[in-house]
Nucleic acid binder design. Sequence first.
DNA 1: AAAAAAT
Length: 704
Amino acid sequence: MSHVAVENVHGLDQQLAALDLSSADVQGVTGRRYIPPHLRNKEAAKNDAPGGWDNGRSNGFVNGYHDGRDNRMNGGSSFAGRGPIRSDRGGRGGFRGKSTGSYNPIQPMQSAGFGYDNKDAGGWNVPKDNAYNSFGGRSDRGKSSFFNDRGSSSRGRYERGGFGGGGNSRWVEECRDEDWSKPLPPNERLEHELFSGSNTGINFEKYDDIPVEATGHNGPQPIDSFHDLEMGEIIMGNINLSRYTRPTPVQKHAIPIIKSKRDLMACAQTGSGKTAAFLLPVLSQIYTDGPGEALQAAKNSAQENGKYGRRKQYPISLVLAPTRELALQIYDEARKFSYRSHVRPCVVYGGADIGQQIRDLERGCHLLVATPGRLVDMMERGKIGLDYCNYLVLDEADRMLDMGFEPQIRRIVEQDTMPPKGLRQTMMFSATFPKEIQILARDFLEDYIFLAVGRVGSTSENITQKVVWVEENDKRSFLLDLLNATGKDSLTLVFVETKKGADALEDFLYREGYACTSIHGDRSQRDREEALHQFRSGRCPILVATAVAARGLDISNVKHVINFDLPSDIEEYVHRIGRTGRVGNLGLATSFFNDKNGNITKDLLDILVEAKQEVPSWLESLAYEHQHKSSSRGRSKRFSGGFGARDYRQNSSSGGGGFGGRGGRSTGGHGGNRGFGGGKGGFGNFYSSDGYGGNYSQVDWWGN
DNA sequence: AAAAAAT
């Protein structure tokens, strides 16, 4: 089976060939299941003994919408037909509220009026006109001007109201007696805004080859279809509207784990469908359980402070993310999956008007997406109470530590009113699993299940990786050649190492007549969002970016990632090229390499080999030389430390045993290892603080 | 010698 290359990739190939670079046929990994190194030694054992985690699902739910829905009425989170999945872990059964008084959903009275009883034809899928007719007068209310003008202006997102209609001030009262598992009436305008915008037609089939490994006891079976377990009609409806056909590998594993109320540590990157992997089950659970005590708390707060018009909000779920853009992105997903529900998602992050964010919070907040600094601020202002936060998600946890957020995170999780671990449910996601993350997992998670998802980015055959030797002085003209070879309307992301460099390059490209924009940390939040929007929409198909855009951002249709400056850290490289070739699309990543990049030679070579990419011979020999200069060079930090093995496997002290194989940098041994909390940037530094020393005095990197 | 993030 040959991969149909995107046209501009061909064009680029020709260009590269003209530049005397060898051609870029995707090396055939077709048919063969890719196994990353850390899983390889496990593979033999696993292959023919699919007893535990990998066995196939029995059928029965292929068209299971009806079955699933009917089952829901029996209450609870049923893993229909799968037998018991709950472990006998003491103290964690049932609802995770702070007290025993779990929410009792009142039998829905309105369902007939909403017309859901005969939505066999797909109540969420019927043409919009029909949907509206059947809802009669209610739709008028839904259509009123609540959800206007979001998306075009960056202010818009604060303008939306609650779903309950009427007025925001009455939001809490209105839903007092409602069954949160029942969908609210549709709203055509909002539906269009949420679901028609970005291209969510995703080809998940491409991802079946990504290996996933789960460890931890009594984990539930993975699912094979969204219908395999009951998530309720609101979630199913929104899955349909999002045009999600099948779960991605992370979702297959994470959804049942979260649904069964287990804590989770997942090594996976955005782009693997991670966001939905936690949003779907968490929201589903909230819809099933209802607001619980959070509702009453919010009402009390409103009454106590009513005369000041201030209320403290008690989100049921909190999602922490490292960057503002990522927080926004998660928030946007949350809006989709909370469409037609009682749950009102909010987002808070720095750089934006805090007053506006406070006003938005005061309209009700059940799911909060936040960057750590701003959230602490909100807590100190008494706007947010975490007393009833039953679901905590740390997204891109390694990145958050990298950025020095650990004090804020611990402040939020441990030194405030958040329910302790075991009472709340905690999910951590991280691309890597170094020691620092393991410690955080130990402190925040209770009896967790560990999920290792093979890297989507670099190892994907969807991405063709090119490394070309370009001297500093030639970079600009070479870049122009590449851009000219690229189709005019395909998106190109150009990474540089410094903010100054980003400005300069954008300037240069602009003067050369290219429609481009840039994003970096010195630009205002407004400008950053504007740039991202211009890029996404294709108005500026070239985006010059620093590390701020490397991770997490899900920009669909990026055809080409260019590392104008290579990063000094292979993790960063992996994240960067992961911006292309996302979920089912083909992508191309071109990196400019010269003698300033010696520090990344070996790791880059490994990545190329791993991904079965063409390796330039000069790179090979450079890496060879390099290896002999500093022999005991370890592999990257990702998954080092034995992959959490110490948490599950008889405490074997073999450290890197299991699939840790070559890892182990983070376990120290080098004097320069600043370790946990010692250096200014957490573990971001120790990776580069090893013994290169004088060999690279000229080198442009920051390890020493 | 960077970038990111609360003000």
